[in-house]
Write a protein that binds this DNA or RNA. Sequence first.
DNA 1: ACCTGAACACCGTTCAAGT
DNA 2: ACCTGAACACCGTTCAAGT
Lengths: 228, 228
Amino acid sequence: MSERSEPKSRRERPAKPALSRGWIVDTAVRIMRAEGLEKVTMRRLAQELDTGPASLYVYVANTAELHAAVLDALLGEVDLAEEGGGDDWRERLVAVLTSYTLVLFRHPQLARSALVARPSGDNYLRLVDRVLALLARGGAPVEQVAWGVDQLLQTATATAAEQSTRDQDPAAQQEWDALTRALHAEDGTRHPAIKAHMPALISGGDRLRWGFEVLINGIGSTPVPDPD
Amino acid sequence: MSERSEPKSRRERPAKPALSRGWIVDTAVRIMRAEGLEKVTMRRLAQELDTGPASLYVYVANTAELHAAVLDALLGEVDLAEEGGGDDWRERLVAVLTSYTLVLFRHPQLARSALVARPSGDNYLRLVDRVLALLARGGAPVEQVAWGVDQLLQTATATAAEQSTRDQDPAAQQEWDALTRALHAEDGTRHPAIKAHMPALISGGDRLRWGFEVLINGIGSTPVPDPD
DNA sequence: ACCTGAACACCGTTCAAGT
DNA sequence: ACCTGAACACCGTTCAAGT
C-alpha cells in the first residue's frame, strides 16, 4: 500500500546514481554488450544515464577515450592460462593469444579501436606481462622477445578487427565475396602467381593458430638489426 | 572583351562534367589528398560535385564502398620492385612490403578501412600476385606461401593503421604516451616481465623491417596444420 | 535511367548559465 | 566543482517527385 503511493518518478528509475567515471564506463559496457559499440555514443550514453551529453565531458575527454576504457574493462575476460595444462610454454602462449583474439571477436568493433588507441590499462599490462614471460621461456634474446610481443598482439588484434566486422557488416561481407570471386575468376594471364597458389589462397584451416606459430618461430630465429 | 561578357555561371565552374563513378572517385581522391579521408563524406563530395548527396547513390552503394575505391586507386602508387636491384628475392619482397606500408602511412585513415573492407581491385590483385611470386622463390611449400601472403599484408596494413593515426590524432598520441609512461613506471612487483624487458620494449630501431623478416622466416619454417 | 530537394534520424563537442 | 540546455556544425541514407 505505502509502496503504491510512492511518487512515480522515484519508482521508475530507482535512486539514479551519481555520475562518476566508473558508472559511465559500466553503463557503456552494458550498452555495448546489448547493442554493439556503434551504439555507445555520447548522446546515447547520456540518455541512458538520464542526463545531457555535456555532463559526460566532466569525466571523459572524448569518445575515443571512452571506447579505450570500455576495451580495457573487457580485457579482464582474457584467460592468461596461468594454471592447468602441461608446462609447454608454446601451447600456453598460443592459448593466451587465442583467448585474447576470441574476446575481441566477441565484441566486434572494439578490435578496431584497439589498433588505433592502444590500451594502457591494468588488464592490458597484465596481458603484455604474461605474453612476455611465456615468450621469454623459449630462450630467445630479450630484444627479440620485447619486439616480438608487439608483433604477436598486433596480429591478434588485426585478425579480430578484420574478421569481426565481416560478420556484422554486410558491406564488409560483400567486399570479401568480391575478393574471393576475383581470385576464383583468375585465369593466370595477368596474375600467374595467384593462379598457381589458388586452392590454398582461399582454403580455411586453423589460420589463427598457424599465424601465431609462424610468429613464434620467426621471433626466436630472427635477430634484431644492428643499431648503427 | 567577348570573354568578359560571358555569363558568370559559365565561367565559375567551367563545363561541370557529367556525374560518373570514375569522376566521383577521382574527386574523392583529390579531397583526401588535400584534407584527409575524414573529409571524404557523401555530403562534402556532393558539394564538391555541385549536386546533392542523394545523386551519388546512383554510382556508389555507400560510404564504405567509396573508401574502398579510393584505397584501390591509391595502391597504384606501390612500387612492385620489378626492375633494378639484385635478384635477392628477400630484399625485393621487403622492398615491396615497405613500399605498400609507406603508401598507407602517407594516407593515414585509409589503412584502417583497408583492414575492414579488403580491397579487391586491380591494384590490390597485382600486389598480392607480386608478393606471392617473390615469396614462392624462397622455395617454401605452396600452402605456406598462400597463407603467408595474408599474414604479411595484414601486418603491413595493421602497422600503418596503428602508426598513422598516431601522427594525426592527438588523442591517439596521448594514449601512446600513457602506455610508455605506464611501462616506464613499472617497478617490477606487479609486472616482472615488463620490468625485465624494459629498455627494448620501448626502443626504436627498424621494427618494420624486422617484422617482415620474422614473418618471412616463420612462414618458410612453419608447416600448415594437418587438416583432419 | 538519372537526378534531386527535402526529410528522417542521428552524430561530437562547446559554452554560457546555473546550482 | 559539477551539471545542464541549447546551440553549432556536421553526418548517412531514403524516398517521392521530377526530367
